[in-house]
């Protein structure tokens, strides 16, 4: 046996603790998933079916952490727009929304960080801007509250210790807990991200009050579908990652 040498592992290039190659392949995965429509034809929403990538933005945050997740989501969305333009109706704003979704996912699972407070402020301000503008146009408060119930649930779940519960469950081993954590985490993150998204989208297209009424059942249904898809993918991916034993990004939540 030769003399043992002093080794300082440098690892590869990282951004905020996530290997750069992870960010590359996640961005590419998100582009590809924007081509896969979720076969839920009943969703009116915007554009009919929704692409599977929408369910994965929270997940990329859970896995890569806030900054790296947002970067992967933003680049993935940007490339998705010009390869599959029909999946985006708003250009650059949809890139911002994807980034917020992923960043929120990363912040949810990040330990010892105050970023969640900043995020909460952004969410609340978005909510106020969104509903506030609606009230000045043609929507009354009762209707606004009913339609945005999902968004409110997200803000509340983010504020309460449920955020930490989701974080701890995602980090836990038993598959049932992991699934519960992902479901709760996806719902919270998606609802909060949706609020920011709505604030932006409502600027592009101030849909009339009658649409708000139609949206009352649709928004929670869509959120439910996204959370289910996100959870199923998340359980498969995270248990798989644990089985393979790949290098974990520094801010991964699993």
């Amino acid at each position: 046996m030769g003399e043992e040498r002093q080794v300082r592992p440098l690892g590869g290039t990282t951004i905020d603790g996530a290997p750069i190659a992870y960010i590359i392949v996640w961005a590419a995965v998100l582009v590809v998933l924007s081509f896969v429509p979720i076969p839920v034809s009943a969703v009116l929403g915007i554009g009919g079916t929704f692409p599977m990538s929408q369910a994965a933005y929270a997940l990329v945050g859970f896995i890569l952490g806030p900054w790296a997740g947002a970067l992967a989501a933003g680049i993935g969305r940007l490339i998705g727009i010009f390869i599959a333009p029909h999946t985006a109706t708003s250009g650059i704003p949809s890139v911002v929304i994807a980034m917020v979704w992923a960043a929120a996912g990363g912040i949810l699972v990040e330990k010892k960080s105050r970023k969640w407070v900043l995020a909460l402020i952004v969410f609340v301000l978005s909510y106020v801007a969104f509903v506030g503008r609606a009230l000045t146009i043609d929507v009354d408060l009762g209707l606004a509250l009913q339609t945005t119930l999902t968004n409110l649930s997200g803000l509340i779940l983010w504020l309460l210790p449920t955020r930490l519960l989701a974080r701890d469950w995602i980090a836990d081993r038993p598959p049932a807990k992991l699934a519960a954590g992902l479901a709760l985490g996806c719902w919270t993150v998606n609802a909060c991200g949706h609020t920011v998204g709505n604030a932006l989208m409502y600027y592009v297209n101030a849909w009339p009050a009658n649409i708000w009424r139609i949206l009352i059942p649709i928004i929670p249904a869509e959120q439910l579908f996204r959370a289910v898809v996100g959870t199923v993918i998340g359980v498969g991916v995270i248990t798989g990652l644990r089985a393979i034993g790949l290098v974990k990004p520094a801010k991964a939540g699993y």
Partner: peptide, 25 residues
């Protein structure tokens, strides 16, 4: 190996006179 992966490395490898633990990748 070992600069990227870390781990425990014993002995010496030299390429064109350069030690592979001491010379950057």
């Amino acid at each position: 190996v070992p600069q990227f992966y870390g781990g425990r490395f014993y002995g010496h490898v030299t390429v064109a006179g350069l030690d592979t633990v001491e010379t950057p990748i």
